[in-house]
Design a binder for these strands. Structure first.
Length: 658
DNA sequence: GCTAAAAATGTTTTT
DNA sequence: CATTTTTAGC
């Protein structure tokens, strides 16, 4: 076995190239210089949190810590990537070996490397969310056969329930009582579905998102050898956005860091916005319980926003319930007060935003320095139309994902079956595209369950005569692809597209648009040499753009464009000018959050996150009449959060048409 | 018995 | 608006 033996360098002999004292303020410096031992950093919005992390990594590397013993846990791969890039500008390329990414992707990589000693098959695959849903649907079908007369929770309800119980550490019974009390009599059947689901995953070497975390936890808890190896290899941990970790992630942090104790967690309880996923901002407070000797550093000086904006956000948070009271301050005095714009309807709101964006651009603010934020993806539909009409280039973050589009899932299924013959979920997708094949025929195929990749299913004589021609063509595709394995993902994707395009044309009316998406996918595929890596990366780190936003390969040069984004996806970003749209009761906060004060707390934090993204200009607009098709009511009140802040913090623009 | 088209329904936020 | 359930049709 190989082992690393590090001679610690004499601090007096290290020559630091960076003048840390000059570049950082006092608290930031303290956080950066505290390299050994646990450190909790409470960092307000815009307080130079990222800067602090970057300089801390630089400092560590400069003082001789091997980069490959450092683990950087961030919320998105994008954030990790950005951070490593900026660090390498400071100290050079050697930081490339830092292990960085989300909890899930880091867990994946650790399991790949060290999972075998726990009996984890080396070729396990990751299921994305839709795979899990599909699989749950499959086993749900089995159980439901015996209960045809009763109504049963649907697949997504079940999946959310399962995930909630795992991420919050509840047993199934308790979770059912809490999440879906109306189905309490069906507990037994529901639990049966879960156990079938998990059985199936084990049998087919599949891990879902939650499994990545739980399996690694089990590995570290129960396998002493693995734990030792991991503890020896990784000695420094930096965790960003700690307020958004859930029970499992907190546990994992503790397990990873319990030996070396060099764990730094950065967080802001004001910015906790993922509780729907089981995130618990109280993990910040619990951190000092895991690591009682931890030092606490607070960053409260805001370098991002003008005081006009900051004052309003501070005021908003005085209405928040229990939390660390903190008030951000800034040297950037003055600035325009945030603007409130009442609009008569969504269309007017869209036209206002588009026009104002163009005006700001005339004033010399680049499109890439502006963003439009909203609570939910669909709030921006009208705006998107308006932007397209005016030919304003934009990219949309959040909302409907590229990968969730039916045609993308379809074509990826065709690639997956090449890799894993027992991937029933993908086979189901592939087969149901063929004319004359429905659920029953598919079930028959899956029962035979052979390795059909050579096209041998044709000999099984399953399916009606009507399905025969379609199956023959599928056989040709499989044969062609299998003969060429291994092969670059891009070429395989081309084979699949050749086969799939005719089917796509039949299935969708809007096929030209969808075929374009397939081209985009093939650009992404071009960056990979290995099919497996391609598929895993797609599941773990999906391209953040939505279907309609112009999807760009990352190395392609970005055209200067406006960002429109859900608030969740805008986390950690900043722009010169920010528009918040649809700030209306019923949408933000959404009507379904109104009966629970805890939810309203989170909505308020969400508003806080949105507002603190702005450096100079902040516009908050609301259409005063929206007819909501779901509740069949008219929303007309501006969001309560504006009232909480108070008029004196705002200026108001009244729109006149013409 | 099985599929495919038509009606109904439920719709946040993300790894 | 897109998925899921129902119903009609083959």
């Amino acid at each position: 076995m190989e082992k690393e033996y590090r001679l610690s360098s004499d601090p007096l002999n290290v020559e630091y190239l960076i003048d840390y004292e000059k570049e950082l303020n006092e608290s930031q410096l303290e956080a950066v210089l505290t390299v050994d031992g646990p450190l909790l950093c409470i960092a307000g919005a815009g307080s130079g949190k990222t800067r602090t992390l970057i300089y801390r990594v630089a400092r560590m590397v400069e003082s001789g810590i091997p980069p490959d013993s450092i683990v950087l846990l961030t919320f998105t791969r994008k954030a990790a990537f950005q951070m490593l890039n900026r660090t390498s500008e400071l100290v050079g390329d050697k930081i490339r070996t830092i292990l960085g990414g989300t909890y899930h992707s880091v867990a994946y990589r650790l399991l790949r490397k060290y999972g075998s000693c726990m009996g984890l098959p080396p070729d396990f695959m990751i299921m994305d969310e839709s795979d899990s849903s599909d699989l749950i649907n499959l086993v749900r079908g089995e159980v439901i056969l015996q209960h045809q007369d009763t109504r049963f929770p649907n697949k997504n309800t079940l999946k959310d329930l399962l995930s909630a119980s795992i991420n919050r550490g509840l047993d199934f019974e308790a979770a059912i009582k809490r999440e879906i009390p109306q189905f309490i009599e069906l507990s037994e059947e529901i639990i049966k579905i879960f156990s079938l689901y998990s059985e199936y995953k084990n049998k087919n070497r599949l891990l879902d998102y939650d499994d990545l975390l739980t399996t690694l936890i089990t590995l570290l808890e129960e396998n002493e050898e693995a734990r030792k190896i991991v503890h020896e290899k990784f000695r420094y941990f930096l965790v960003d956005e700690y307020q958004d970790t859930n029970l499992l992630q907190a546990k994992l942090t503790r397990l990873l860091g319990e030996k070396c104790r060099n764990v730094m967690a950065v967080g802001d309880d004001f910015q906790s916005i993922y509780s729907f996923r089981g995130a618990d901002y109280r993990n910040i407070f619990r951190f000092s319980e895991f690591f009682p000797e931890s030092k606490i550093v607070r960053l409260e000086e805001n370098y991002r926003s003008t005081s006009s904006i900051l004052d309003a956000t501070n005021c908003l948070m005085t209405h928040a319930a229990k939390s660390f009271r903190k008030t951000l301050f800034t040297e950037r005095k003055g600035g325009e007060k945030p603007v409130i714009i009442p609009c008569s309807n969504e269309d007017q709101q869209a036209r206002f935003v588009a026009q104002r964006i163009l005006e700001l651009r005339e004033e010399g603010i680049s499109l890439s320095e502006m963003a439009v934020l909203f609570r939910s993806g669909f709030h921006a539909y009208q705006l998107e139309l308006e932007l397209q009409k005016r030919k304003i280039p934009y990219q949309k973050w959040g909302g409907f994902k590229f990968l969730e589009a039916a045609h993308i899932k379809d074509i990826l299924a065709h690639l997956r079956i090449l890799l894993n013959p027992c991937d029933h979920i993908s086979w189901t997708r592939v087969l149901s595209l063929i004319d004359g094949i429905g659920s029953k025929t598919i079930k028959k195929f899956l029962e035979v369950s052979g390795d059909f990749r050579n096209g041998s299913f044709l000999e099984e004589n399953i399916g009606s005569p009507r399905s025969k021609p379609g199956l023959v063509i599928l056989g040709q595709y499989l044969k062609k692809s299998m003969e060429n394995l291994p092969m670059e993902p891009a070429s395989l994707l081309n084979f699949a597209a050749d086969y799939y395009n005719p089917l796509l044309k039949k299935k969708f009316d809007d096929y030209p648009k969808r075929m374009k998406d397939l081209d985009h996918l093939s650009v992404i595929a071009g960056k990979y040499k290995n099919l497996e890596t391609f598929l895993t990366d797609l599941a773990l780190e999906p391209p953040s753009n939505s279907v309609n936003g112009n999807l760009k390969a990352e190395n392609e040069k970005e055209e200067e464009s406006l960002v429109i984004s859900t608030i969740h996806s805008a986390k950690g970003m900043e722009w010169n000018s920010v528009f918040i749209i649809c700030a209306i009761e019923g949408r933000f906060p959404p009507f379904y959050s109104m009966d629970d004060p805890e939810n309203i707390e989170e909505e308020r934090r969400l508003m806080y996150v949105a507002m603190t993204r702005a450096k100079e200009n902040l516009f908050i607009s609301y259409p005063s009449n929206i007819y909501d098709h779901i509740t069949r009511t008219v929303f007309s009140e501006p969001t309560r959060f504006l009232g909480e802040i108070g008029e004196e913090y705002f200026q108001k623009w009244n729109i006149r048409e013409g």
